[in-house]
């Protein structure tokens, strides 16, 4: 019955404007996004696949990959739990200081990552507030894995919560109340009603959180101490190799990070396309 969808005929001056705007956007994207991304892979494979694989198989590179995964495996689940708890508190309870909690959740977005790293050095470093006490108990945080995890958690803290809060606000608590009246216990209520309703948004938030956790440079750089093979994550490894003129090695590791970004982007797009209505309309602000 309905006529095939066709864009309205537009007068040619407007068509020119359309074309110019589209062209401008494409040029920008190519120049500032696609070209650099392509460069990463081109540079990494400049001397062929052999040297590329060789560069990745180096013990330092492998240890950086392992460390990056380890940090993400600890930081992401922690933020998952925190994110759900914070979103629950923000959307299901009325309490004093709610606005303040909201502001605190956003804090990592507005603080420079370097500063967040520095804060941990000031707290737990050798001359920091808790430094001497930690030292006397043989606990090492700064220039060690715990420091990396802490800094990463700080930086990625908002991702899950910010994704869930608008959605849970929009969904309201009526379904949970219904479950409660029907006799569900707290856990049943969470796993049978709340979680299924937020699962895609949660996955989306975890994805973004993970991408950032693996790619974080600034905060991690400050607390890492750059001990190669011990406290360098992939982004730090890239920088160190680059500074040592190991271009293929640097770009090889960078290509892995770029690959991670592409996979994240693909899954994210898939989620948005398939479950757009179950994901909060507003993706978290500034990265």
């Amino acid at each position: 019955m309905s006529a095939p969808l066709r864009s309205r005929p537009v007068a040619w001056p407007r068509r020119v404007v359309h074309a110019v705007l589209i062209l401008l956007a494409l040029v920008f994207l190519t120049l500032f996004l696609l070209l650099p991304l392509a460069t990463v892979f081109v540079e990494a494979l400049r001397q062929g696949l052999g040297p590329y694989l060789e560069a990745i198989k180096e013990p330092e590179a492998l240890s950086a990959i392992r460390l990056t995964l380890l940090v993400a495996v600890i930081a992401v689940p922690m933020n998952l739990v925190f994110g759900i708890a914070a979103a629950w508190a923000m959307t299901r309870f009325e309490f004093r200081g709610k606005a303040l909690l909201g502001a605190f959740i956003d804090l990592p977005f507005s603080v420079s990552p370097v500063v967040s790293g520095l804060v941990y050095v000031l707290l737990f470093g050798a001359r920091g507030w808790f430094g001497p006490w930690l030292d006397s108990h043989g606990i090492k945080i700064i220039f060690a894995v715990p420091g990396l995890v802490l800094a990463t958690m700080f930086v990625t803290l908002p991702f899950v919560a910010r994704e869930l809060i608008p959605l849970m606000q929009a969904q309201g608590s009526e379904e949970e109340e219904a479950a409660r009246v029907l006799g569900a216990s707290g856990w049943q209520l969470f796993f049978r009603v709340t979680l299924p309703n937020i699962r895609w948004a949660l996955l989306y938030g975890v994805l973004l959180c993970n991408a950032r956790a693996m790619g974080e440079f600034g905060a991690v750089s400050v607390v890492s101490g750059h001990i190669r093979g011990l406290t360098t994550t992939m982004p730090l490894e890239v920088e160190m190799r680059y500074n040592e003129y190991e271009y293929v090695g640097a770009f090889a590791v960078a290509s892995l990070l770029a690959l991670l970004a592409l996979v994240t982007l693909a899954v994210k797009t898939l989620l948005e396309w398939r479950y757009g209505d179950e994901i909060a309309a507003h993706a978290p602000g500034g990265h």
Partner: peptide
Amino acid sequence: GMVFQHYALFRH
């Protein structure tokens, strides 16, 4: 047994 104003059916 309670019937909510907007029914609050479990959508999933």
